Computed example of a mutant assay.
Amino acid sequence: MIRRFGESPEPGRTYTRRIGVYALLPRGKSLLLTCQTEPGPDLQLPGGGIDPGESPVSALHREVYEETGWMIAAPRRIGAFRRFAYMPEYDLWAEKICLIYRARPVRRIGPPTEAFHEALWMQADAAAMRLGNAGDRHFAHLHARGV
């Protein structure tokens, strides 16, 4: 069973399962994060959905690049969680299965290619308090503690 963070599913509401990959990207005591500025500012671990036919690791490389402009190396899966959320960009109620990886940010190629995303570095302990969802905060907190 995958641990759930956030709200319980609403009785009678239909949720679409969406599997995604997300990255803890440490450099020293800081993490590389993305801020999605629309529909409202939301601080997130970089990542997103796995496209049909795409492997989780390929999706992770693509999503991190799209949302931060950085290339990564040596991704290793460290955990998973699920959450139930409304995704306004898709007008969709989703059961999000979030696969969490730790990877090394190698090189910034340029700005994020995905609209309304900004890359930023933040101390891991601050990120553990400010990330927009409880699952992301949990994994940032584990990283800040050295777990």
Rank of each mutant, 00 (worst) to 15 (best):
G28V: 08
I50Q: 01
P26H: 04
G6V: 03
R18T: 14
E95A: 07
G132W: 12
V21M: 01
M129H: 12
Y22W: 13
A80M: 07
A80T: 10
G69L: 00
E89I: 02
S8R: 15
R104M: 14
F139M: 06
K96T: 13
S30C: 12
G135K: 08
L33W: 07
I100P: 05
E95W: 05
W70E: 00
M122R: 13
P9Q: 08
T37F: 07
V64H: 09
W93T: 10
I78Y: 00
G6C: 06
P39N: 04
W121I: 08
M122Y: 06
G28R: 04
T16S: 13
A23Y: 03
G132P: 09
G40Q: 12
H61L: 12
D42P: 00
R3K: 15
P111F: 09
E38W: 09
P11R: 09
P111V: 11
I109G: 04
I109F: 04
E89G: 11
I50L: 01
Y15G: 04
V106L: 14
W93M: 07
Y101G: 01
R77P: 00
L24Q: 02
A103Q: 01
L99I: 01
K29W: 06
L120H: 06
Q123L: 14
R17W: 06
G49M: 10
K29F: 05
A124D: 07
F81Y: 15
F116D: 14
S8Q: 13
S8H: 10
D125F: 15
A134T: 03
V64C: 04
C35D: 15
D42W: 12
A126G: 10
L142K: 12
A59D: 07
P26M: 06
F84R: 04
Q123S: 12
M87G: 03
L60T: 00
P56N: 08
C98A: 12
A115C: 08
I72T: 06
I2C: 03
H141T: 05
G79K: 08
R145F: 09
